[in-house]
């Protein structure tokens, strides 16, 4: 007899086996960043927006990552940057998953012309490089974090729609779905109870991996002036400011490192999740 332990059950069992090595490091890094984002106003070493020291000083004991061209503490600003990047990424991923799920589920489950229309739309969206499309949308809506967020959701949901659609089509052909149909379970209930729970794992894994990508994209948009504007402490915007101060390398390095750590951390965790769920090459 082959025992099939479903991913959800595996998750529920106390010690997750996949949380080892790089994934564990990644998970710790993510936890630390989340704590920072939540609590930094309570213990922030300096005011992120105030001039607290002479300008363009290199790293020192008092200013771990030096000060920028306006005399603000770079380390403090880097910590505060997580309060933009992480919530934005979270909202973008969540909204994209929700929209993608609805569209993907309908397309995959109903098939026919509905599927054809929805998927052609998805194809068109995905034909553009995400950064280019996000730039175009933000530019037309006007710069700002809120508009960048909307733009990123518009760019991102088709990925999940396509992923979930493929899963739904695969799961829908399984025998227990047919058996539910034979019992007389209503179509929506079949989709909700039989198809979606079994189709969802790759979306979950991908969303984890994409989290880092969205952080990167947020920073990229800010870097080119379409997202957060100065003086707000946002990683991408900070890099823009640092880029002009060529000899004060620490200004751009600090937010760059922050982005690197977050992206890597989510990739490690996502990778491990994918291996543990044995999700085969998605997309």
């Amino acid at each position: 007899m082959t025992d099939v332990i479903s991913p959800a059950r595996r998750l529920r069992r106390g010690r997750p086996e996949w949380l080892r090595g790089p994934a564990l490091v990644g998970a710790i890094a993510i936890t630390v960043w989340l704590l920072v984002a939540l609590t930094v106003p309570l213990w922030s070493p300096y005011d992120p927006l105030a001039e607290v020291a002479p300008r363009l000083q290199g790293p020192s004991w008092h200013h771990l990552m030096g000060t920028d061209q306006l005399g603000r503490d770079v380390f403090t600003r880097m910590l505060w940057g997580s309060r933009t990047s992480l919530p934005v990424a979270f909202v973008v991923i969540l909204s994209s998953v929700v929209i993608g799920t609805i569209v993907g589920a309908i397309a995959g489950y109903r098939g026919g012309w509905i599927d054809a229309v929805l998927m052609r739309f998805v194809d068109i969206t995905m034909a553009f490089p995400p950064i280019l499309l996000a730039m175009a949308i933000t530019a037309s809506l006007g710069p700002g974090v809120r508009n960048a967020l909307i733009a990123m959701v518009l760019v991102w949901w088709p990925i999940y729609a396509r992923l979930l659609r493929a899963q739904v089509i695969a799961v829908k052909q399984r025998e227990y779905v047919e058996s539910a149909e034979a019992i007389g379970v209503k179509r929506f209930a079949i989709l909700r109870r039989y198809v979606l729970p079994m189709a969802y794992t790759p979306v979950l894994v991908n969303a984890t991996m994409d989290f880092g990508q969205v952080v990167l994209l947020t920073a990229s948009l800010s870097f080119i002036g379409l997202g957060a504007r100065p003086p707000s402490p946002e990683w991408g915007a900070m890099i823009t400011e640092g880029a002009t101060q060529f000899y004060s390398w620490w200004i751009a390095t600090a937010p760059g490192l922050a982005i690197l750590v977050v992206v890597l951390a989510f990739n490690y965790v996502g990778d491990a999740l994918r291996d543990s769920f044995d999700v085969k090459g998605v997309l």
Partner: peptide, 22 residues
């Protein structure tokens, strides 16, 4: 047809595949 199904039911070959694993 959905309501009619209470009168005619089916047993499949492989119960491993035809029962929802969760």
């Amino acid at each position: 047809m959905r309501r009619m199904r209470r009168n005619l039911q089916v047993v499949f070959q492989d119960p491993q595949a035809s029962l929802h694993p969760r």
